[in-house]
Write a protein that binds this DNA or RNA. Sequence first.
DNA 1: CTGAAAGCGCTTACAG
DNA 2: CTGAAAGCGCTTACAG
Lengths: 343, 343
Amino acid sequence: LVKLHKSMKRVSLKDIATKAGVAPSTVSFVLNGKAKQMRISDSVAEKVLALTKAEGYTPNTIAVSLRTGRSKVLGLIVEDIANPFFAALAKTIEVRANALGYRIVYCSTENDSQKGNDLVTMLAHSQVDGFIITPLPGMEKRIEDLLQQERPVVFMDRYLPGLDVSSVLLDNHEGVRMGMDHLLNRGYQRIGFVTVDLKQVQMQQRQKAYEDVLQQWGRSPEANLVLNLPFAYEHLFAVERVKEFIRGKKLDAIFFCTNYLGILGVESITQLHLKIPGDLAIVCFDDHDLFKLYPPGITTVQQPLGEMANGAVELLMEQIGAGTKLATHHKKVKAELIVRGST
Amino acid sequence: LVKLHKSMKRVSLKDIATKAGVAPSTVSFVLNGKAKQMRISDSVAEKVLALTKAEGYTPNTIAVSLRTGRSKVLGLIVEDIANPFFAALAKTIEVRANALGYRIVYCSTENDSQKGNDLVTMLAHSQVDGFIITPLPGMEKRIEDLLQQERPVVFMDRYLPGLDVSSVLLDNHEGVRMGMDHLLNRGYQRIGFVTVDLKQVQMQQRQKAYEDVLQQWGRSPEANLVLNLPFAYEHLFAVERVKEFIRGKKLDAIFFCTNYLGILGVESITQLHLKIPGDLAIVCFDDHDLFKLYPPGITTVQQPLGEMANGAVELLMEQIGAGTKLATHHKKVKAELIVRGST
DNA sequence: CTGAAAGCGCTTACAG
DNA sequence: CTGAAAGCGCTTACAG
């Protein structure tokens, strides 16, 4: 076993070839599993393999990339990698991609379409083999360029209407339905819905679903009990609003539209000394397993982060594998209802 | 402005040279800002610049990497990118690195040294220019290889004793001292300390600091009131233990060693109907701004994530810039005491 | 002031 | 069964 010296140059394929007394191409074929195909003798193949092991040789991926035109790197552009939701997605994507021999370069748009566009450009220049993007309005043009160049692209969690890009999205309507059916089947009558005044499509889809489900269960529009908190609420203010909401509307159940809302909901409820679900049933949309840290009794509508992440990688791999432009797929993933403790 | 066609080959430096009627080297010099240095005429330089713009030319970074031996990519290896603490660090590192013209490839060890070693190997093969690593026991040998090859490496958040590697670490002792001084200065007498039975050096340093500070304030060892929860506690079990601890030891203040402990602490305290800080003062070590979601009255010892991340990038850049092996630096970052609401 | 040429480390037709 | 050669897209001594 040859020990590397400090400033020793990395051993190259050519070095191996020289030591083995064969041509570089022979080494390349052996290492790429084309020995049989190229009808290289077993003895030569074995010698090459033994040498690469002894010398600790591994191919320079940069050179391979330049030659083959494939970098084995995927670009992941999310809103904010420090957000636990995106961090969890990134993690699963990483694992899946690594298993397939791909590395991930990730970047955060910070909800700035200008920055998002710059990131796309940067990743395109560094020759990533494909993109997984959580897009923002304002990125349409730059992403159309990618499509034009036949670069594999998948949208995740969000999409841009009008762009013909494969996507993996959560079925928000179905998720709310599951949570609401859970409550309605158990006879709850006055189900409040707490949301936040955000322009995001997700929030609007969820609120719409709440209203649809109530209507489908034959409730009158007066049954719609919605608390719409302002964006960027103050913690104490919001807790008070939720408390008022619960008491004022005499709720027997409450549905929180996001997990951050759920956190302050739990605090409001604790302050009211309500038993869960004895006095009040709770369902909360949970984007990242946050409620596993919380006491039982809270039912959550869990985003299937793994499924979403794996779905995105899968759709991307299809495109990369195909080489040619495929028809776009729009994959909807279903949330999972998790009932913790007694109902 | 030339529009790219679907399967049109990317425009290369050579293409620009041909169109400009100059040699490729001339284009290269102009684009790399060496026009003056190479005494290229302004008219030629302008023509080249105009053409690159019109053709939308950008250099192929893979080719640049192969040629220059520098990839402009940094490898970031953390325990788990889905953990908000590491996600926040990753985010800051990303921003800083991007500003310096570097991209980040990140990977998670999942606390598995075998996986950690494989990741180091993988990143080394893909020619990253430097490593920022949250190391694990068992990675010593593989990291020594990196040092031997004079690859820039920085440890962040953790270190491996005996390895001569630059590092950025939190000053845990000082952090606990700040929190404890805050309480002791305000006259609190019975200060409990809640920790968890983890082998991590951080936890042990924090507990040691708690004990040291009490001793330095002249308290007898009987003043040490420590609740050591088992690793992987059940939520309800832990909440009960904290409640017992507060009542049993007649605490007037409590110090939580991590933010996850703090979360269940807040729940215990709410259940006991204690006013904060009227009945009980709380200080909590907060690794990732979690408590900004919580009600005021909780004082936190905040990890300066930004400082830590920027410090790591900075130490790495020093090494990359130097080209030769530098003396190692061990940077300690100070936590910040954040007092929310009245004391 | 500018160009021709070598070379980074691979892969892959092509020719024996 | 194996080798010589071209080339991926750049950069950088070197030679005018």
